Amino acid sequence: MPSPVTGNQIINIDPQDKLVQVVAYAQSSGVQSVVIKDSSGRSVFEAKGKSSSGGEITRIGEGSFLSGGNGVYTVELTPSAGILPCESACVYKGSPYIHSYSFATNDGGADAGDKDFNDLYVDIIVFKNKG
């Protein structure tokens, strides 16, 4: 299991026009945010919001983009949050067809409050083919 981290996260996505799907959820009364930027600093995805009520998980954003540039992306999550990063791949005939990056956060840092790591959840899914 990964250890919690803080700060901006760097991910690498094949720059060969891969289809990237992003969805973000909040389960917090505080505003949660995610911004994904390419290596030139251009925002390719942004979402901000909070839970609709109490402990309900609320989708705060979704979207897609085509990868490009050098394939290096910065994922900026709610400031000061503790982050559990996760990466996985579905492989077919020796090649990754679906590559996923997931980030789950805990408000105020890894050891703060209820340590639930569900205040913000972001799933970034990279498909091998865009067609």
Rank of each mutant, 00 (worst) to 15 (best):
A89Y: 02
Y101R: 02
K18D: 12
I11H: 08
S29R: 02
L77F: 09
N118D: 12
I83E: 08
C90F: 11
I83T: 09
E62T: 11
G82A: 11
G69M: 07
P2Q: 15
V44L: 04
G109D: 04
A112F: 12
I98S: 09
A112Q: 13
I124Q: 01
K48M: 09
M1H: 15
P15L: 12
P15Y: 14
V72M: 07
N106V: 03
F103E: 09
K115A: 10
N106T: 03
K37H: 02
I57T: 15
L77H: 06
S39L: 05
V34E: 04
R59D: 00
K50H: 14
S88I: 06
V22P: 01
A81Y: 07
H99T: 14
V44H: 05
C90S: 15
G7H: 06
N118L: 00
G7L: 07
G68P: 08
T105H: 05
I11V: 09
Y25V: 12
V126A: 00
L84N: 10
V34P: 03
N12K: 13
D123W: 05
F45D: 00
I13A: 01
Y92H: 00
G63W: 07
L84D: 08
E87Q: 14
I98F: 14
S100F: 05
G69H: 09
V34Q: 01
K115M: 13
Y73G: 03
G49F: 14
Y97Q: 14
T6R: 11
S95Y: 14
D14R: 14
P15I: 13
M1D: 15
K130M: 09
P15N: 10
S102Y: 10
V72R: 11
Y92D: 00
I36F: 11
S51F: 07
K93G: 00
G55R: 15
K37I: 00
